[in-house]
């Protein structure tokens, strides 16, 4: 009798919770919001190049981010967040395309929603491709050793002070990457454009997933999302451009 009763009671495991359609969306929203917060830090610190002091302020903070233990531990969390967001996104994409095995011959999708809301998977893939290149340009050399050209550049920049030592000079790496390669600058700007549309949907969508849809709060959230996407992306895009155009030296 008691065992029968037990069967009728609700049983909710963490696995049920996070593998349900709403739980999966929750993971996307939480990791997405975490990455949104990360971008504020990333963009803010990068903007130190606009002191235009040959990267002194920028390098100071880049050194702090690269050497501080707490930041390095948080970096592991960042990579975990990115991976989770990507893997969950891929799984959602696979499941969602399976949910419609036969496509419509005629589908007026533009009449019922925004193109970027429907293209989050594609935009995410573009961002991922960009990210591979971005990590190769900056994260790998700064964490795992220099790329070609850095030493030569440091020699000219620092002159006699440079004695072949490994100076942690992320600013020099930025100059190497952006000053002489127009195509790299173009790819970076395109990557940021993909990021812009991704954020424009993602920011406000995360709050809907958390269950926040409110007459007074939602317009504020949506406004914040647009302002955030525009600001962050304009700032990011301006960095390689201003280095290429030698506004920042």
């Amino acid at each position: 009798m008691l065992t029968n009763l037990k069967l009728q009671l609700l049983h909710m495991t963490w696995k049920h919770f996070f593998t349900s359609s709403i739980g999966k969306k929750l993971i996307m929203g939480l990791t997405g919001l975490f990455l949104i917060l990360f971008l504020i830090v990333h963009c803010g610190l990068n903007a130190m190049i606009y002191f235009n002091d040959s990267g002194e302020t920028f390098n100071h903070w880049a050194h702090f981010m690269g050497s501080n233990l707490i930041i390095r531990v948080m970096e592991i969390g960042l990579f975990a967040g990115i991976l989770l967001h990507i893997i969950q996104g891929l799984m959602l994409w696979v499941q969602n395309s399976r949910a419609r095995p036969v496509n419509y011959a005629m589908n007026r999708a533009p009449a019922n929603g925004k193109w970027y809301s429907r293209s989050m998977g594609l935009l995410g893939t573009l961002i991922l491709l960009f990210l591979v290149m971005h990590i190769y340009h900056f994260w790998t050399p700064s964490r795992l050793g220099g790329i070609a050209g850095i030493h030569a550049l440091q020699e000219t920049r620092l002159g006699a002070e440079y004695n072949g030592q490994e100076v942690h000079d992320l600013y020099a790496e930025m100059l190497v990457v952006f000053q002489n390669n127009l195509w790299v600058v173009i790819v970076y700007v395109l990557g940021v454009i993909a990021l812009f549309w991704h954020l424009l949907h993602g920011f406000q969508s995360a709050f809907q997933t958390f269950g926040i849809n409110h007459k007074r709060y939602t317009p504020i959230i949506k406004g914040l999302g647009v302002a955030y996407s525009v600001l962050i992306c304009l700032l990011f895009a301006s960095m390689p451009v201003s280095m290429y155009l030698r506004w920042i030296k």
Binding site: L10, S21, N96, G113
Partner: peptide
């Protein structure tokens, strides 16, 4: 909990907040 579990079992896709449904 039960209605969402059944919805998932039936093979519907996951919501990505495009709001085409509402439109």
């Amino acid at each position: 909990l039960d209605m969402v579990a059944q919805m998932d079992k039936e093979g519907f896709g996951n919501c990505t907040n495009t709001y085409a449904c509402e439109a």
